[in-house]
């Protein structure tokens, strides 16, 4: 093949590139024009054939329906599945109601939620029984029934099934504090703290190991190991009970509230030496 001569300079090359059209480059005009005209005709026919409604995507309405039905189906299945797996459970927080204890009753129901518990709903039974057996009893029994049916011990030991409130070495507030610290967080924590706060443990005693009943409120002058000896104040006992109950019932698992109020309102004059102490 004969090679074309090289342009002598860059200007010559650029002039060649910009040179007028040659006859060869313009050949085939008729064919090109007819092809273009037919292409324009095809495009215009394609547009004119489309009706005004056809300009809309014919699949858009169907696709919207499909998407809507799919969404409804997915939501339905998801809802049924969620309900079956128990995702939607009713509020299982213990509803407490305050039942004032009778004076002649040895057993006082402090906080009671539903009497019956069912496994499916997970509603818990929380019954706190405070038993004070007069002078002979030196401990307060606290029964906290949870859904698992296990009883917890209020003082320090969390593994006992029958919980007993042992008066701590100190006043009523320290007893409540020890119960709050000793009870593991859970559904029965608040009830246990409440029961301890309601108990008369440490409020008034004649002996360091004595826990009075709920009816007994006779303060006995005792020694106080803490700084600032003060005589026993019956009024302080009343305040301590009230605050303890309120926090325990209202806050449930809140340890901090129960401890703080119990210590703050407790009677510093009373010295309690329970079994645990």
């Amino acid at each position: 093949m004969n090679q074309p001569p090289s342009p002598e300079s860059l200007d010559g090359l650029l002039n060649a590139l910009r040179s007028p059209a040659t006859a060869e480059e313009l050949s085939g005009e008729a064919t090109a024009i007819s092809d273009m005209a037919s292409a324009i005709a095809d495009s215009s026919e394609g547009i004119s054939r489309m009706s005004p409604t056809a300009h809309r995507n014919p699949l858009s309405r169907l696709s919207r329906r499909v998407v809507g039905l799919t969404a409804v189906g997915v939501l339905s299945v998801a809802g049924v599945a969620a309900a079956a797996t128990g995702v939607f459970v009713p509020d299982n927080r213990p509803k407490t109601e305050f039942v004032p204890g009778s004076d002649d009753s040895q057993e006082t129901s402090v906080a009671t939620t539903d009497e019956e518990s069912t496994e499916t709903t997970g509603v818990q039974n929380t019954t706190v029984d405070t038993t004070a057996a007069g002078d002979e009893a030196s401990e307060t029994t606290l029964a906290s029934n949870t859904t698992k049916g296990s009883d917890t011990t209020a003082v320090g030991d969390t593994t006992q099934t029958d919980s007993t409130i042992v008066c701590a070495d100190g006043n009523h507030g320290m007893t409540v504090s020890s119960v709050a610290h000793g009870t593991p967080p859970g559904p029965g924590h608040g009830a246990a703290v409440s029961a301890a706060a309601k108990s008369d443990c440490g409020k008034s005693t004649t002996d360091s190991t004595t826990v009075t009943t709920a009816n007994t409120s006779t303060p006995v002058d005792t020694t106080m190991p803490h700084p600032g000896n003060k005589p026993a104040n019956p009024g302080s006992n009343g305040n301590g009970n009230g605050n303890g109950n309120g926090n325990g019932q209202g806050n449930g698992n809140d340890n901090g509230n129960g401890n703080g109020n119990g210590q703050g309102n407790g009677n510093p004059a009373a010295v309690y030496k329970g079994k645990g102490g």
């Binding site: 074309p4 001569p5 090289s6 590139l17 040179s19 040659t22």
Partner: peptide
């Protein structure tokens, strides 16, 4: 001449 110049220029490009 134009064609050969143009062909040569395009060949260089």
């Amino acid at each position: 001449d134009d064609a050969t110049s143009l062909d040569a220029a395009l060949a260089l490009i």
